[in-house]
Write a protein that binds this DNA or RNA. Structure first.
Lengths: 217, 217
DNA sequence: CCTACCGATCGGTAGG
DNA sequence: CCTACCGATCGGTAGG
């Protein structure tokens, strides 16, 4: 698969100013973030293994060896992308699930908020980090995989009490554990087919999901 | 990621007999099928790009150049794996959906049969072909992708009349188009977490999915 | 289907 | 963060 030339801006010039003498560039985080964003986009489009560190460097306007100044290895870059994705997801989730009034709302409304923010994190513009996390597990080393699994378990744990309440009230008929797996699967798969240019919005998706999963809401 | 040594059976000896003089080995299809099975398993476990043609050759008991006697390229091997997966899926689907009495059954029962056979094709033992198809789209060339899309569209088209009937009867509340995408997503994601050694069976999954998606059945 | 091999590319590093 | 480079590996091929 050819690499789109547009990713490499040949006319780009790095800032000409000499680095401040007191500190080298390590502390500004600017270039590191550029590498992360480039890596997320490329890992998502081509997969981890098919993406070269040279692709990433070029997309961030660097030379081929420079990513290794910021990251110890290609693996470490992948892990950093996923970690950033999970931190975004956890923050967004907390912003809806841990606000004071939330636990008092109807369970169906709580689920709707979880579903909506999940779609947003998955499908929002520039959110390549979470899709990479979902679809590149294989490429992680065992230690990294365990570490990511912890973050994911934290994220998923907030769904359980909501689903249990819905099951108790009869609005959710399927077993709670399998429901969680099937529901999250339905949502996660949307990264394969969602097209922001087409008709359905994140709100449309949320409404459809709620109508599909719950008896009434 | 290290390649498990167990895949390469160092003590394996190819049959010593000289090839029949009238035809070379091209016609028996035996070695070709061994390559396909090995490729499916490795593509699934490590991904297309991280799998080398040498991995595949070794897993099939061949030397490194030999896969190219059977397949023009690594790409062609991937496509052949996916094609076999889709043919399996289409056959299985036809065996439940196109039998004489099927169209007369209740729509909920028709859906249940579709869901069950979908899970079977996805999760059955040795069925690495379909998961590779689902998760390696990126690695196909545009022409191959279009060709696969046709097969997938054929497969999915059988779901639409069933979902429409369920929508009309009120058993499925969400819009039919989005329902199809969300339902198939929920099923397809199961390849990420299903473990045949653990409790839930394909029948359990089918029951849970039906309870999750339909109002009553 | 094997042997022997090629050209290209890749992750990573030393030294500045 | 760049330059220059290395060792290893990879998809694929010629000739049998």
């Amino acid at each position: 698969m050819p690499v789109p030339k547009a990713l490499v801006d040949a006319t780009h010039k790095r800032p000409r100013g000499r680095p401040r003498k007191t500190l080298d560039a390590r502390d500004d985080g600017n270039r590191r973030q550029a590498l992360l964003a480039a890596a997320a986009q490329l890992f998502r489009r081509k997969g981890f293994s098919a993406t070269t560190t040279r692709d990433i460097a070029a997309a961030a306007g660097m030379q081929s060896g420079s990513p290794f100044y910021h990251f110890k290895s290609k693996d470490a870059l992948l892990y950093a992308v996923m970690e950033e994705g999970m931190h975004t997801a956890l923050e967004r989730q907390r912003s809806v699930a841990l606000v004071p009034g939330h636990a008092g709302k109807e369970p169906a409304l709580q689920l709707q908020e979880l579903v909506y923010s999940h779609f947003e994190v998955l499908l929002g513009p520039g959110n390549d980090f979470v899709p990479v996390m979902l679809y590149e597990w294989r490429s992680l080393q065992p230690r990294q995989r365990k570490s990511m699994a912890t973050l994911v378990a934290t994220y998923e744990s907030l769904w359980m009490p909501v689903l249990s309440a819905l099951h108790a009230s009869g609005q959710l008929r399927a077993p709670v554990g399998l429901s969680r797996l099937l529901i999250l699967g339905a949502l996660n798969w949307s990264v394969q087919w969602f097209d922001e240019k087409k008709s359905a919005s994140v709100q449309d998706l949320t409404d459809a999901a709620m109508a599909l999963f719950l008896r009434d809401c």
